[in-house]
């Protein structure tokens, strides 16, 4: 699937490609200090903060891969959850349309994140064969929307907790753009549930 948000997808991929290429090329050198490589028509990527040796750099790549893969796994869970909601028969047509759009965006997130993992030389997480969702509790459209809202709320917190950890700030920025999208999902779902869509100024 081709992402609608090409710049977000491209930023993740280009960041990952460049990081890996640079780490491989620089293996054995004493320092990455001062390295900046042009990306995407003027955007730049600097070395991972704190990396001073090839070993440090490899550790930084491995760490970023783990962070990305945890996000990939969470995105796959969201995709599966929306599928459960879509197939429940509980959603009105207009709501179903919105849900499928949100699912499509989660697919784009998963694809972009997984691509970044592969470009860093890692192996992207696969979807689980089974997700243990509380389907027995989904009896109405409201139940489905609450279930989805809970997942989106959790996703916001997960990205908030992960974004500071990236060694490469460009990955943090790209992940933040995903966070923004999922925060919008949450707000829309809250609105559909009759709740204040944005009940506070800060989230963690």
């Amino acid at each position: 699937m081709k992402p609608n948000n090409a710049s977000e997808h491209a930023l993740l991929i280009e960041t990952a490609q460049d990081s890996r290429r640079r780490f491989l090329r620089q293996a054995g050198t004493a320092t990455f200090s001062g390295i900046a490589v042009a990306l995407l028509g003027g955007c730049t990527i600097t070395r991972a903060a704190g990396t001073s040796t090839a070993s440090d750099a490899d550790d930084a790549v491995a760490k970023d891969v783990r962070i990305l893969n945890t996000a990939v796994a969470a995105e796959y869970e969201a995709i599966a959850a929306y599928q459960v909601g879509a197939e429940s028969g509980l959603l009105k047509p207009q709501v179903l349309k919105v849900a499928l759009n949100f699912q499509s965006q989660h697919k784009q997130h998963a694809e972009a994140l997984a691509s970044a993992v592969r470009k860093l030389g890692g192996e992207a997480a696969d979807p689980k064969t089974h997700y243990n969702f509380p389907v027995d509790k989904l009896k109405s459209q409201e139940d489905v929307l609450q279930f989805a809202a809970g997942l989106e709320r959790g996703a916001v917190s997960a990205y908030v907790g992960a974004i500071p950890l990236f060694d490469h700030r460009e990955l943090s920025g790209a992940a933040a753009s995903i966070l923004a999208d999922e925060a919008m999902h949450w707000a829309v779902l809250r609105h559909a549930l009759g709740l204040d869509p944005v009940p506070q100024a800060f989230y963690s």
Partner: peptide, 15 residues
């Protein structure tokens, strides 16, 4: 615990 629910649940294995 709201910060944990992106990946965890009391009763279910998730991420």
């Amino acid at each position: 615990y709201v910060r944990c629910i992106g990946c965890h649940s009391p009763a279910r294995n998730r991420t």
